[in-house]
């Protein structure tokens, strides 16, 4: 125990010696009750009651949860979330053992990932990886000649919508289409609500109309690209 904490403990013992026995027992009972109830009261009511060791200087007291510190905590969380989102969307996809990429993709090794519907996202494209390639459809490119389907949502929601399109079109669900080219299979499926809007120079010329269909291009089970369409 550090030397600096001895006097306070000793002085408390001295006080107890001087007090009548009834008072000493009462104080000890109150202290025991406080020790037992302090963490629970903090949890139930959000209080910041210090523990006995903290009061005796044996433990570093917790930072008070003032509005300023709450704001700082919230900012830290937001920053952490932002950096997590940025790293998950702009960096090259990393294999995370035991976890799922974007919440739904299972790692197959060698930088390849499989969706619940069985689509495989692997290296390729100008961007270096199919995930980075389809990520281009999360934002508009108004200067691009022609149309550019933009999905409005997160990467995880985009991947879920792609899986949904693939599943429904393979199951020949109502409103879906399947087209076979020399090497590719192109699946299309409608959605009940708008999933994005038409971007690119063509889209901006038409005031970016909403899009309610998705097109998915695959080779075998390998996803090549996917985007919302009119």
């Amino acid at each position: 125990m550090p030397r600096s904490q001895r006097p306070s403990t000793e002085s408390m013992a001295n006080v107890l010696r001087v007090l009548p026995a009834r008072w000493a027992i009462t104080i000890i009972a109150v202290l025991i009750a406080y020790v037992l109830l302090q963490p629970r009261l903090n949890t139930w009511f959000g209080w910041q009651l210090p523990s006995i060791p903290a009061m005796l200087g044996q433990e570093t007291p917790k930072t008070k949860n003032t509005p300023a510190s709450k704001q700082a905590d919230a900012k830290k969380q937001a920053d952490a979330k932002t950096s997590q989102t940025q790293s998950s969307t702009t960096e090259k996809p990393k294999s995370s053992s035991g976890s799922f990429k974007f919440g739904i993709l299972k790692s197959l090794g060698r930088d390849r990932y499989e969706s619940p519907a069985g689509l495989v996202y692997g290296p390729g494209s100008e961007e270096g990886h199919r995930l980075q390639h389809i990520e281009r459809h999360l934002q508009d490119d108004p200067t691009r000649p022609g149309s550019h389907g933009v999905f409005q949502g997160t990467m995880e929601q985009f991947l879920i919508a792609i899986d949904d399109t693939y599943r429904r079109a393979r199951g020949h669900a109502k409103g879906t289409r399947t087209r076979n080219e020399e090497a590719e299979t192109i699946y299309e499926a409608p959605f009940d609500e708008s999933i994005g809007y038409l971007g690119g120079s063509s889209g901006s010329g038409q005031k970016n109309p909403p899009l309610k269909r998705m097109r998915v291009v695959v080779r075998g089970k390998n996803l090549i690209t996917a985007f919302p369409i009119p």
Binding site: R144, P145, G146, S147, H148, G149, E181, E184, I186, R215, V217, T225, F227, I229
Partner: peptide
């Protein structure tokens, strides 16, 4: 600048 031939007949989205 961007040089292209036409819109893609396969995916109908790309250049």
């Amino acid at each position: 600048y961007l040089i292209y031939v036409r819109a893609c007949p396969i995916c109908k989205e790309g250049l």
